[in-house]
Simulated assay, not measured.
Amino acid sequence: MALYGTIINGLLILIGSTLGLFFTKIPERYKETVMHGIGLAVLLIGLQMALSTEVIIVVLLSLLTGAVIGELLHLEEGLNRLGDWIGSKFTVSKEKEGFSVSQGFVTASLIFVIGAMAIIGALDSGIRGDHEVLITKGILDGFVALVLTTTLGFGVALSVVPVVLYQGTIALLATQIERWLPEAFLNGLIVELTAVGGLLIMAIGFNILKITKIRIGNLLPSVITIVVIYYLYQLF
């Protein structure tokens, strides 16, 4: 079932948001330790995926070309500006109306939808029927939803709608990719796409652990350039 991972992801966001309504304050040390545990698990998943590569040069060239495109387009900065702009349109004074439903919705939606795990996980669900990435993302999203709900309120739970629509659409489209590409080519492409996605997910893990600050948004084009580079590799 292509949508299984997406549905689980959405349910975990709802569970986290519901639990968050019953907590007014979570000690900082609990948040930090749990996030460290999640970061380590994300690193492990990314490493397992990255090691699946059979043609490391294809992965390397995909990341290099993707990084150049991302930097030229300033994707990371653009995503941040988009989030700030949308957030500014929905910000409501808490002193007047308490928690803003719109603010919670927009903030959570941007956090859960924008990122490599959403894209790679949905592709994995659609192409391979592998939901591990989206389930892991769901666990991470659920905890983040719990924390956000304690400060932003019920609006966080509504973010499940764009998450399910976005990831579900990618997963369903991915199920049709075999109609456009030969089976032998597709099987090899999936392996290398998985490896590229694994490296991006490892970058998320490093960022969660605050080991470094990788501009993951500027590396996202590598998910697209891998198709062209792998095609050229097979051609020559």
Rank of each mutant, 00 (worst) to 15 (best):
Ser93Trp: 04
Met35Cys: 00
Glu97Met: 08
Gly129Pro: 04
Thr136Phe: 14
Leu123His: 09
Leu73His: 08
Ser100Val: 07
Ile57Trp: 14
Ser88Pro: 07
Glu28Ala: 08
Phe23Lys: 05
Thr91Val: 14
Ile111Glu: 11
Phe154Gly: 02
Leu64Gln: 10
Leu79Gln: 03
Ala41Gln: 00
Phe154Arg: 07
Leu79His: 01
Gly155Asp: 06
Ile45Gln: 04
Leu140Gly: 14
Leu21His: 09
Gly83Ile: 05
Lys31Ser: 10
Glu97Cys: 06
Glu97Ala: 13
Val113Asp: 06
Thr151His: 03
Ser62Leu: 11
Gly87Asn: 15
Gly37Asn: 05
His74Trp: 05
Phe154Gln: 04
Val55Glu: 15
Ser102Met: 12
Ile38Leu: 14
Val59Ile: 14
Leu110Arg: 12
Asp84Val: 01
Ile57Phe: 13
Ile111Ser: 07
Thr65Asp: 09
Ser52Asn: 06
Val133Ala: 03
Ala108Arg: 09
Ile56Leu: 12
Gly138Asn: 06
Thr24Gly: 14
Leu60Arg: 04
Ser102Asn: 12
Val160Tyr: 00
Arg128Lys: 09
Leu60Pro: 06
Leu61Trp: 07
Pro27Ser: 08
Val34Phe: 13
Ser88Gln: 10
Gly66Phe: 01
His74Asn: 14
Phe105His: 10
Ile86Tyr: 11
Val55Met: 13
Gly115Trp: 02
Leu134Ser: 08
Gly138Gln: 04
Gly142Asp: 08
Gly37Gln: 07
Gly129Gln: 09
Ser88Thr: 08
Leu47His: 00
Thr151Arg: 08
Thr33Arg: 13
Leu64Lys: 10
Met35Pro: 02
Ala50Thr: 12
Thr53Gln: 14
Glu77His: 08
Pro162Val: 00
Val106Pro: 09
Ala116Ser: 15
Pro162Gly: 02
Lys137Leu: 08
Ala50His: 09
Asp124Gly: 07
Thr91Ile: 14
Gly142Arg: 02
Ala50Ile: 06
Val59Cys: 12
Val34Arg: 01
Thr53His: 14
Gly46Ile: 07
Leu134Arg: 09
Thr65Gly: 13
Ala157Phe: 01
Val161Lys: 03
Glu76Leu: 13
Tyr30Thr: 11
Ile114Asp: 01
Phe22Leu: 14
Arg128His: 01
Leu79Val: 10
Lys31Asn: 12
Ser159Arg: 08
Gly153Phe: 00
Ala145Cys: 02
Ser100Lys: 07
Phe99Gly: 09
Val58Ala: 15
Val144Cys: 03
Ile127Met: 15
Leu123Gly: 08
Glu71Lys: 04
Thr33Lys: 12
Gly39Ile: 05
Thr151Pro: 01
His36Cys: 11
Val156Phe: 03
Lys89Tyr: 04
Gly37Ser: 05
Lys94Pro: 09
Lys94Arg: 15
Leu148Met: 03
Ala50Pro: 05
Phe112Thr: 11
Ile45Thr: 06
Met49Thr: 05
Gly66Trp: 01
Glu132Ala: 05
Thr149Asp: 03
Ile139Cys: 12
Gly70Pro: 05
Ala41Phe: 01
Asn80Ala: 13
Gly115Tyr: 00
Leu40Val: 15
Ile139Glu: 15
Val147Cys: 04
Leu110Trp: 10
Gly129Glu: 13
Leu51Arg: 14
Leu61Lys: 06
